[in-house]
């Protein structure tokens, strides 16, 4: 495979996702630079998870294009999936497999050679402190341990792009620390790009090089923390303050935005969808 010289590892053009009359993601445009931790923040129901799921191939867009590493996901999904890892917020994995079997299975799905798979499995089991549990059935693991297994599985094929939805859910403080360190190492030393969605603003502030704030299915602000401060009209303040300022809206503004997302039928079905 030839190395591509590209400016953005992920490119979204006029991306749209509709669930019936409801527009979850509305003509979104986004460029994610390679080798960075890119955060996607937003209130509940803003469209973050839907966007991430479309990037990973879990959901099909209604319209628009997604390009990963210069390749259109609609044209060659097998390639784009082979260079993308995903960590969902809830670690649903095959309970009846052992951790070792699960990782070997993932290696097989990504066509990894036995030698490479073995060395990566050893490395990741040690990194996530799972070596002693390698032969235990995943069903007997705690939520945090399952989350670590999912992390190991996503990193096993050494993806160019790692998409992470709420990485800290279920992890203990040690796990938090491990993940933050890991994100830095992966981007700085291995050149991986991490696309991260989180509600934990301290984590975003600490690890993200660039942030996009999404509201009502659209990107409302983008940049590093300083640029976000400027766009919110503040000279200083934490990410939390900036976030609240950017996403604040009056009841009328909110009602109008919700009505627009439902195709203009104001407040007709405010709770009839479940995705973010």
């Amino acid at each position: 495979m030839t190395e591509k010289n590209i400016e953005s590892i992920v490119s979204l053009k006029k991306l749209r996702k509709e669930y019936g009359k409801f527009t979850a993601v509305d003509e979104m445009n986004l460029e994610v630079p390679p080798g960075k931790v890119f955060g996607v923040l937003g209130p509940n129901g803003a469209g973050k998870t839907t966007t991430l799921k479309m990037i990973t191939g879990l959901l099909h867009p209604t319209s628009g294009t997604i390009t990963i590493d210069g390749v259109d996901t609609a044209k060659d999904p097998t390639y784009t999936k082979s260079i993308t890892g995903f960590i969902p917020d809830r670690p649903y994995v095959y309970d009846k497999l052992t951790a070792f079997e699960y990782l070997r299975f993932i290696g097989g799905l990504y066509h990894m050679s036995g030698k490479l798979a073995a060395s990566r499995i050893r490395e990741l089991l040690e990194l996530f402190e799972l070596s002693e549990w390698a032969d235990g059935l995943i069903e007997s693991f705690s939520h945090g341990m399952k989350q670590r297994v999912v992390f190991a599985g996503a990193l096993l094929p050494q993806p160019k792009l790692l998409v992470v939805d709420e990485p800290m859910v279920g992890l203990d403080p040690k796990g938090h620390h491990l993940v933050k360190e890991l994100f830095r190492t992966l981007t700085q030393e291995e050149g991986m790009t991490i696309l991260l969605s989180t509600h934990t603003l301290e984590v975003a502030e600490e690890v993200c090089d660039e942030i996009a704030i999404v509201n009502h299915g659209k990107i409302v602000a983008q940049g590093n923390l300083n640029e976000l401060r400027l766009s919110s009209g503040q000279d200083e303040g934490s990410l939390e303050q900036v976030f609240l300022k950017i996403t604040s809206e009056s009841k009328q503004e909110r009602d109008e935005a919700v009505a627009n997302r439902f195709g203009g039928a104001a407040k007709s079905e405010p709770n009839s969808w479940s995705g973010e």
């Binding site: 191939g57 990504y110 599985g153």
Partner: peptide
């Protein structure tokens, strides 16, 4: 079941 996301996002 709920593990189907693994298949959907894998290069299969």
């Amino acid at each position: 079941g709920r593990s189907f996301w693994l298949i959907m996002q894998a290069p299969v």
